[in-house]
Design a protein around this nucleic acid. Structure first.
Lengths: 216, 216
DNA sequence: AATCATATTGGTTGATCGTTCAACAAATAT
DNA sequence: ATATTTGTTGAACGATCAACCAATATGATT
């Protein structure tokens, strides 16, 4: 019988597991209830961990938040980007497959939960500097991936089109759309936002085609 | 000497003033720190009011939040819409003047504070149903005004362009842009988002012109 | 002058907040 | 075997939380 199976003794071998359980519980509760509204005791109960253990791994609740945001940084590629790239080859389609993943998550929670980063961004940017920087890093990594796809799109977008700026615009539309979906508890505002972005992309692609025709 | 001047006696004549001071203080603190992170005692201190008075006008902290959101409903036209319409006559320009007003507010707070409704939308939509409905009403009123302007734009936008849907897209871009500006503490992400929207509008207007030319 | 509705006061409640710590247990190194 | 490192326990801390209420004051009505 392995140590991790129904063994509630004080076993240092479960160390990594305890830390992970705390991060997972905290991530879920911060997303569902928000950071300030989530008590440490709720995280402890959800994780099945006693308070002393938490303060062994994290020096404060704020530090736990930073840990959660670090975890999101680690999860971006394996959980989000790689599945998107596996599902879709076309670089522009990849952008909208990514947005469809967020849609799926919204729908699967009845639009109660949106983008974890976006939610925390608005709640803690003023007051928690270290966490704010992690939020920015999350946004930057996300945009870097999308910008890479847009670069891959090459001449299918106008030459004058700044791919980095466009990637940040994609983030803007995703976050704005999920905010409205969450507020209304309906997916339609998100879908409408993505449809608006799709229309914009269609026009950019049309211009790129016209550009190409002109230049031979 | 009027009653309201440095008179801290228990004077019912100051009733409206007390209620207003509470709403003003609460609105400011909820925006600066978030709803859950703001203690009732902080609101009381900011407003210069004792706890009993607050619970005379509001039956709970949640009720105070609803009051704040009702106040935003009342303030939308006099504080935001009417100044925009006074400053700008062209219906499409009005949209971007409105967005410039949000920009000014962002800049004037070093991008620490963004859209009050958007911030509350993400924090309380899951957990406070009544407040959530007020958030939705705020969004709907905002969009109704913008949609009106877009209708006023008439043939300058394509006939097929759904003005209601486009107004919600404008909201999406504003909220997504302010979120990134707040996270990064820089106005550039907001400006870039609005520039992206401006580009989209330019293309819509170009199509409308082409449409008009075709049809005579 | 008496009455009444309106508003304010401020101390107090029990619950929960984030955090600490001395004692202890298990694995590893010596 | 012993010592050391790594983790765990759970009670307890002071602070703050949202909320309550009996006493009191004011202005308007009669």
């Amino acid at each position: 019988m392995r140590r991790s199976d129904s063994d509630n003794s004080a076993a240092p071998a479960d160390a990594a597991s305890t830390r992970e359980k705390l991060l997972e519980a905290a991530a879920r509760l911060f997303l569902e209830r928000g950071y300030a509204a989530t008590g440490v005791s709720a995280v402890l109960a959800e994780a099945g961990v006693r308070s002393g253990s938490m303060y062994y791994f994290f020096k404060s609740k704020d530090d736990l938040l930073v840990g959660v945001l670090d975890r999101y940084l680690e999860l971006l590629r394996p959980v989000l980007i790689e599945p998107v790239e596996a599902a879709t080859a076309d670089p522009i389609d990849r952008v909208f497959t990514l947005l469809a993943f967020y849609r799926h998550f919204l729908v699967s929670t009845n639009c109660r939960l949106g983008c974890p980063i976006g939610n925390l961004a608005l709640e803690i940017s003023d007051t928690h500097e270290e966490a704010r920087q992690k939020v920015v890093q999350n946004f930057e990594n996300w945009c870097a991936v999308v910008a890479g796809w847009l670069v891959d799109a090459g001449e299918r977008l106008p030459a004058s089109c700044d791919r980095g700026a466009l990637s940040r615009y994609v983030l803007t539309v995703m976050e704005g759309g999920q905010m409205q979906a969450k507020a209304q508890k309906r997916i339609e505002p998100y879908d409408a936002s993505i449809a608006g972005l799709r229309d914009h992309f269609n026009r950019l692609e049309a211009e790129a085609r016209a550009e190409k025709e002109r230049n031979g």
